Computed example of a mutant assay.
Amino acid sequence: MLKLANHARTIYQWLLAPLMLVLIYISAMNLVTTFFLLEKYRHETIWSLEHLNREIESTIHESQLYLAKASTRNQLRFQYELLWSRLPVVQSSLHQDPNLSSVPGLELMVNEVFNRVQAMDGYFSSEEELDTARLIRWISELEHDRENLTNCLVNDISAGNGRYSRAAWQDLLISMVAVGLAILLFLIIVSHLIFVLLAEQKRQRRQIDKDSLTGLASRDFILEKLNAFCEKKTDFCIVFLDLNKFKSINDTYGHQAGDQVLTYVAQQFQASLGKMGTIGRIGGDEFIWLIPSIDQQKITAYYHQLTQSLSQPLQFNGKQLPISLSAGAVQASACQYVPSTVLEYGDVAMYWAKSLHQSTIVWYGEIRNPPPLPVTIN
């Protein structure tokens, strides 16, 4: 069940990134759409109001010409109908453009013009003589409307810092914030996924680098490090460590006892030798101590601390299991920094120490005419 939950969480995490990309795309498209819609509304609104303003101005001019006997009633009637036809277009623009509500009094102003023009419909359509006083009053009202409309166009709608522009920018800002948040969330999710991926790689690397039973460095890790030292021609030594009579412990007390011995010995290795180099298990009861130093006296002193810590038998199910080591060492410089030669000479030194039952480290350079023992590490 836990494994299934982990798989579900992994799938969920990896699906979040493409989902956030979709969200970014939708937010970006919304931003672009909002921008073009606002521009469309702005141009249509300005165009409609400017045309209305011009029609009002033309109607005022035609009315003044009529009063001056320079125009006919039919011409005035025609201009009135042009003004009347323009008003529904302006009212439609007011209803389509949501940002016009930010301009105070605009809708009321247009409605007043509409009512004023509508009230004159019967006056212009009748055959009676036009009332000069009423026409003059109507011209005055239209001039007042035109002045208000011009101020509204100049100060509130066309101006970059007007109320209409500020409302439009607020809409754009909301869309931009949505895009920014989507991008931020996407970056957070991608960063989290990268962190999870790196953590998983690190965990897998630790599993590769560590021996699963003892927690010491793995065979691959210790050999990789040895090869790196040889490539750089770093002065270093290796010490092969082998448990004496380990097979008899396994045969007599079982593999559980053998595993406990290996775990216990690994703990002592870390406590006594870990401060000076790296200890790795290369197989069975064999270990390598890789030391970035050629101070044999210091290495021997550390090894002596280890043998002292292992001098007391290990207690297992009421039985005492004596533990002892054989150790053979070699300096890499004596092998011309050839990894296979370093391993071969260290292995030979260790087997020589085992055959002599030595409790101290046997150095390859101290062996005269070493026997051709088999190499256990390639």
Rank of each mutant, 00 (worst) to 15 (best):
Q260K: 09
K225F: 05
N227T: 07
Q170W: 15
Y345H: 12
V375R: 07
F114Q: 08
N148S: 07
N6G: 01
S101W: 12
Q320Y: 12
D211L: 13
G346T: 09
I288Y: 01
L2A: 08
F186C: 05
V32M: 07
E55G: 01
K40L: 13
E286P: 02
T72N: 08
H192F: 13
R134N: 06
P374I: 09
S248P: 01
R116K: 12
A168W: 13
I174A: 04
D171T: 03
E107S: 06
S359F: 03
N148Y: 10
M120I: 03
S165G: 06
K245F: 13
R116D: 08
I11Y: 15
L243A: 00
I11P: 01
N369T: 15
D235P: 08
L262D: 02
K298Q: 13
L197A: 10
R146F: 08
F78Y: 11
V196A: 10
Y351Q: 03
R146P: 01
D295W: 14
M276Q: 13
S101R: 05
C230Q: 04
M176S: 10
H357E: 12
I139R: 02
V348L: 09
L82G: 02
F269H: 00
L314W: 03
E141V: 11
Q336T: 13
Y25F: 12
L181E: 04
K319M: 14
G277Y: 05
S212E: 13
G160S: 07
L243S: 01
R116L: 15
G122D: 14
V113P: 00
Q13F: 14
E129C: 15
F240R: 01
D211A: 14
D220R: 13
Q268M: 06
M350I: 14
H95G: 03
R206E: 09
Q170V: 10
A178Q: 06
R134Y: 12
L325S: 01
L184T: 13
N161L: 13
R205C: 07
T10F: 11
L37T: 11
D259C: 09
I189G: 07
D285S: 05
Q267E: 10
S48R: 08
R203Y: 15
L31A: 03
I183P: 08
E147W: 14
D211T: 13
F186K: 00
F35Y: 04
V362K: 05
R73N: 10
S101P: 00
F229M: 05
C152P: 08
M29T: 08
D156C: 13
Q308C: 04
V110Q: 06
A266D: 04
F287W: 02
H357G: 03
I249N: 02
L16A: 09
L130E: 05
Q170A: 08
L325H: 03
A266Q: 06
